[in-house]
């Protein structure tokens, strides 16, 4: 039986692929299925990688972007949104003149981290990598960062923005008003938006909540989740349109919008962590009531 180039012993293949530069590896991915597997394998003992998430975090004067992706073993077929090989990552970084990057692994989720100097470079990477979701977490949120996040919302299908957190003793940092920010971000291409404003110094009013609900109503095609801190001195029992809201003091208020069904969730901030589901008495037809099962409690520490 004649030997073919793609069926050499594994140690021979290892040498061959090791000698190749990234462009040649990319071309080999087009030769055949086994060559593609080997090209991907050459950098990692897994066949493919999956970009599941891109995390951007900006803390004080430090910035970093983390591409979180999952290696896929040949026998596995889970979590497919978008995948690319490590080879591709390396090439992309080379083309973007980004030389400082590394791969790490935590709980089988492999993270690709780069450091570069400005938002424009990050944006370029994001445009190239095309992640489905971006998690953006930041302490500082000046105007230029706001514009950057709004541009990100044009690039991806799903974005989560968390801002306003600070460490004990930190001074208050600038952050956008959630109403203005929501109005801006909701018109972007992004379909699934989550905003978590944990700037505890801000005092949102019932009128703010009403404005936000109106915004949500204007964009029924978007999946929206808004969380912000309501700092009330008294328990409330409010009515907003067909929604009846009630809350205790100092709790998180979360408004979620799944289609045209609203969920409002209040979280108590202080220890012990607990939450009470809150109402909302929007007149939901019985046939739609199953949508309520979409309520998402995302913090395991919370007790309903």
């Amino acid at each position: 039986m004649p030997i073919d180039i793609l069926n050499l012993p594994i140690n021979a293949n290892k040498f061959i692929y090791q000698f190749l530069d990234n462009s040649s590896l990319l071309q080999l991915r087009k030769v055949s299925k086994s060559a593609k597997e080997l090209a991907d394998f050459s950098h990692q003992r897994f066949s493919n990688t999956l970009v599941s998430l891109l995390e951007f975090s900006k803390e004080q004067n430090k910035t970093r972007v983390a591409f979180r992706y999952l290696f896929r073993r040949p026998s596995a077929s889970n979590y497919w949104d978008y995948y690319a090989s490590k080879t591709c990552f390396k090439c992309a970084m080379l083309n973007l003149n980004i030389s400082v990057y590394w791969f790490s692994e935590y709980r089988k989720i492999n993270t690709f981290v780069i450091n570069c100097s400005n938002n424009a470079a990050y944006l370029q990477v994001i445009k190239q990598v095309k992640p489905q979701k971006i998690n953006f977490a930041t302490q500082v949120f000046p105007k230029d960062t706001t514009e950057f996040v709004l541009e990100l919302a044009n690039q991806v299908q799903s974005i989560s923005v968390c801002y306003g957190y600070r460490f004990f003793g930190d001074t208050i940092r600038p952050s956008p008003n959630i109403i203005a920010f929501t109005q801006e971000i909701v018109v972007r291409k992004c379909e699934n938006i989550e905003i978590v404003d944990i700037c505890s110094s801000r005092n949102h009013t019932v009128a703010d909540t009403e404005t936000l609900i109106k915004i949500l109503h204007q964009y029924p095609e978007k999946m929206l989740s808004l969380s912000y801190y309501e700092d009330r001195s008294e328990p409330t029992d409010d009515q907003i349109g067909s929604y009846k809201l009630s809350s205790d003091v100092r709790r998180w208020l979360t408004i979620k919008h799944f289609g045209m069904t609203f969920f409002i969730m209040i979280r108590r901030r202080s220890f012990p962590y607990c939450t009470s589901m809150l109402h909302l008495n929007r007149s939901i037809p019985k046939s739609d009531s199953t949508k309520c099962s979409a309520i998402d409690i995302d913090d395991a520490r919370l007790n309903i």
């Binding site: 040498f15 061959i16 000698f19 190749l20 530069d21 040649s24 071309q27 080999l28 087009k30 030769v31």
Partner: peptide, 12 residues
């Protein structure tokens, strides 16, 4: 190495 050299600069 000789084999890998034949790949360089070539398309798939």
């Amino acid at each position: 190495k000789a084999i890998s050299n034949t790949f360089k600069g070539k398309t798939g």
